[in-house]
Amino acid sequence: MNQLFDIPGAASKISGEVDSVFLYILLVGLFFFVVTQGALIYFALRYRKKKGEPERETPYITSNRALETIWIVIPSILVLSIFYYGYTVYMKMQAPMPGAQEIGVVAKQWLWEFTYPDGRKAVNELHVQTGKPVGLSMTSEDVIHSLYLPDFRIKQDILPGRYTKMYLLPDRPGEYQIFCAEYCGQGHSLMLGKLIVMDAHEYAEWSGRQAGESQAAMPPARRGEELVKNSGCLGCHTTDGSPRVGPSLKGLFGRRVELSDGSSVTADEDYLKESMTDPGAKVVKGYANVMPTFKGTLSDADITDIISYMKTLK
C-alpha cells in the first residue's frame, strides 16, 4: 500500500511500529466504514419510495436497548485498544536513548543550524551514522518551528527559550527530507533540511574529510559557492536573478541598491559583509527585514569567500 500511494517507507524500527499502529486504526476504521456506509446506502436504496409510489406503512420503532448497548460497548472497546496501542508506541518514541550522540539544533527563520558534539556546525545538513542513536536538543531563536522527518514518522515543535528533545535511531543509509511543520512566516515552506544517514565506513570518511576541509586549499570563489549552498542562503536568495524572500545574488555585487528608507547604497564588500552580520541595518527596498544574522556562524574568512563567489555571479 505504501508503494501504491508513494508513501515514504519507514526509515527506522520505530517508524515501522508507527506504521503498524496506522494499519491497525485503518483496519478498525474500515470495519466501521463498511458497516455504517453499507447500512446507510443499503437502507437508503432498499427502503426508497419511488415517485408516484404510495406511502408505505412504517413501523413505529423508537429504540432498542440491546442494539444500543452493543453499539456503545463494541466501539468503546475498539477505541480503547487504539488508544492503548498508540500510547505504547508513543512512549517508546519519547524514551531517551542511552548513549545517544547529542546534536544541538537551533531553528531560526528560515534555516536549521546543527552543532555536532565536537563543536563543528552545519546549516541545513545533518550527517549521522546508521545504528547509532541520535538525540536532538532543540531550541529556536525566534518563533516556533517544528522539526519533521516524514520518513522517520517523527516531529517535534521547537520553542524559543526552552529545549525540546527528539531521539532517532537511523537504520538505513540515505538522504531524508527535513521539513519545518509549524508555520513560521514568509519562508516557512523554504525551511528545508536534509538528514544524511551514512554507514560506519562512509561516515568515518566524511568525518575525516570535514576535519581536513578547513585547511584544504580551494579557490575562494569555489569555497564561497559551497558555503552559500551549505549555509541555507539559497532558501531565500536565488542565483538566477529571480527574487524570492530576499533579493537575488545574481549581479548584486557592485550594483547600486535602493534601501527601504529611500536612500541607496553600492553593494560593495563592506555593505555585503554588514548585510550578513547585521541584516537589519540596511534593508533593500521591497523586502521584509526577516534575515537572521550570520555573525558567529560565518567567520570573516567565510564571508570574504562568499563575496568572491558573488562577484562571479554576473
Binding site: V28, Q37, V79, G86, Y87, R153, K155
Partner: peptide, 29 residues
C-alpha cells in the same frame, strides 16, 4: 445522507490523530 456519509469518513480519520503514535507523524500535514 451526504452529511452522514462524509461525516463518517471525517469521524473515522479522527482516531489516526487522536492516537499518539500516529498523530506525531500526521499532525500539521
Amino acid at each position: 445522507l451526504t452529511f452522514i456519509f462524509l461525516f463518517i469518513v471525517g469521524g473515522l480519520t479522527g482516531p489516526f490523530l487522536g492516537s499518539l503514535a500516529t498523530d506525531v507523524h500526521l499532525t500539521d500535514t
